[in-house]
């Protein structure tokens, strides 16, 4: 089968990338700062791709993604630090609780559309942050100490599974149903698609992987504080998705890599950092108003003479 051949070649490519980087890291050829940037990149890719399924695929304009990142971070940190669980279990529990939070937020708020949904999700994210801020068990405003356990291996396979699951979801009747909701909700409904169900499913999947990202994030920086999960963080994630091109998975991955690299590089110039970062955003939006990739995927560029259409 041709399709499975494509899949295996992608898998091989991914494993080669993983192995090369892992080899360089174990050979002490990668500086600590670069390692840290790679892990941050992976976290941002996971966040971008998980928001892509909500905004890019299903067309639900949610700007409270940092709230689910916070749930994943705090719940996994509680699991490892307070309950002494292994890191993998903590990631899973953090992700599942984030997905449940997604359901809890999504079921009432996904009745809203457009601007109203954006405001509601922003509000929910702030509620989640304030809740953690006021629980002394997790350290309140001072934050919570977390041991460093995130490695390149966790970060890489986190990204790999996120992309695999979301691309599998998108390239199925369920993903098509979500795109139909994005394109025309009334027509989708009239064609027999339970629009509420698919909005909530997309939201839950997005929250789940935001939770995974949160768990890896929490175990990367020694400390987590509620201030890190404010609405500015939500906007950062939103920027990845919009800059990459709404509806393009590879676009959001590229944007996340690109912006993380720029942001890390500019840390050497603290005075002008935000000015240059903002200029880059303005320039991209001026010259590529539909984002870096538009709605295309990077794989489309290699398929000459074929366009559009989701394949199995």
């Amino acid at each position: 089968m041709k399709k499975s051949k494509v899949f295996w070649s992608y898998l091989a490519l991914a494993l080669v990338i993983y192995a090369v980087v892992q080899f360089l890291i174990s050979g002490n050829m990668v500086s600590y700062a670069s390692q840290n940037m790679l892990i941050t990149m992976c976290i941002n890719i996971m966040l971008a791709v998980s928001l892509h399924v909500v905004i890019g695929i299903t067309g639900q304009f949610s700007i409270g993604h940092a709230g689910f990142l916070a749930v994943g971070a705090y719940i996994s940190a509680i699991c490892t630090m307070k309950l002494g669980m292994p890191f993998v279990t903590a990631i899973l529990i953090g992700a599942v609780v984030a997905a449940l939070a997604g359901l809890l937020v999504g079921i009432p708020s996904l009745r809203l559309k457009g601007d109203y949904l954006a405001i509601a999700t922003l509000g929910f994210a702030e509620i989640i942050r304030i809740v953690f801020l006021n629980i002394d068990y997790v350290g309140g405003a001072a934050g919570m100490q977390v041991t460093h356990q995130s490695t390149w291996t966790y970060a890489f396979f986190g990204v790999f599974i996120t992309i695999l699951v979301i691309s599998n979801f998108t390239k199925s009747r369920h993903g098509r149903a979500c795109i139909a909701v994005r394109e025309d909700e009334i027509a989708a409904d009239a064609m027999g698609i339970n629009t509420t169900y698919y909005k909530v499913i997309a939201f839950a999947i997005g929250s789940f992987f935001a939770g995974v990202a949160g768990a890896i994030y929490a175990h990367n920086f020694y400390i987590i504080q509620p201030t890190a999960f404010g609405f500015l963080k939500s906007f950062d994630i939103l920027i990845f998705v919009v800059l990459g091109g709404l509806g393009s998975l590879s676009g959001s991955v590229i944007a996340a890599i690109f912006l993380t690299a720029i942001s890390t590089y500019l840390q050497g110039f603290p005075e002008t950092r935000m000015i240059i970062y903002s200029l880059v955003l303005i320039l991209v939006m001026l010259y590529r108003p539909k984002g870096l990739m538009g709605t295309k995927e990077i794989t489309d560029l290699f398929k000459f003479g074929k366009k559009g259409g989701t394949r199995i």
């Binding site: 098509r176 394109e183 025309d184 009239a190 027999g192 559009g308």
Partner: peptide
Amino acid sequence: RLFKELSVLDNVKVANHGLA
């Protein structure tokens, strides 16, 4: 009210959704 950004085939597949 077609799904403009979907291919012609996918438009029909979306409607076929309820039967799968």
